[in-house]
Amino acid sequence: MPTAEEIKQRIETSIPGARAEVEDYTGGGDHFRATVVSPAFTGRSRIEQHKLVYAVFGDEIGGAIHALSLKTQADPETPLRGQASVGGGEQQRTAPATT
């Protein structure tokens, strides 16, 4: 059963220049939420960025790791991937509400 710290370290050692914040959001060791920033994401679509992170864990996703919720970003200085100008670039987007 991986810990949030292990997930963080594996992401950071596998993806060049990556910084990750990982939380175990159920406390059960199988549902994690990660925010990953890496220059390796530059020029890649969101799908490709997430695939890079999923690739770190291979078959563990859906196995030992039931869920790995992701937010990825190429550059820590750029709020949210520079996806056009929706919302005026405010950092207002938060993780969707959970119950």
Partner: peptide, 12 residues
């Protein structure tokens, strides 16, 4: 995408 990407796209 999955739930995360769809959520981001929904909110934007």
């Amino acid at each position: 995408g999955g739930c995360d990407i769809v959520s981001e796209m929904y909110e934007s």
